[in-house]
Amino acid sequence: MSVRVQREDFDLGAEVAALRSGRPAVGAVASFIGTVRDISEGSAVSAMELEHYPGMTEKALARIEAAACARWELLGVTIIHRVGPLLPLDQIVLVAVASAHRGNAFAACEFIMDYLKSEAPFWKKEETPEGARWVDARVTDEAALKRWGIPSFNASGTEAGSDGEA
């Protein structure tokens, strides 16, 4: 099991090889890579900056991985998320999951991404012709996590987001 937050790029082939290495019980590996698009909300994106909360990020990712391992029988998980300046075409995030059969690998990979999108403390800032802007959280991401039975109020604002005043 491996969780990394790094500025450097990653190599899918090398990561999958590491995930399978010494694990002959693995019969399936599912992976997802998120990349930087050159268009967002109708605006051209020339660059992106990814900020995170050092310390909390690693704990959040480890918790997400543990939640996946509690739901499905998995033989290995790798989560890598990049931070710092990125350009269109760059890789942002990798999730790779190994299991005995494909069902668990597919499901856990999607679950981890859905969880990460709404619960891991990363923020994207895009450079556009209209200036730099912080990306808004999406309620569709929140809905994606809710279908796994995990409540999220990331985009919609929350009981947790309110400050408790009338």
């Binding site: 998120g34 909390m56 942002i92 995030v93 991404m113 999108k117 619960e119 959280a137 990331n154």
Partner: peptide, 10 residues
Amino acid sequence: VAFFPPVTGG
């Protein structure tokens, strides 16, 4: 204690 906007990684 940290305050931050909704998260947008991935």
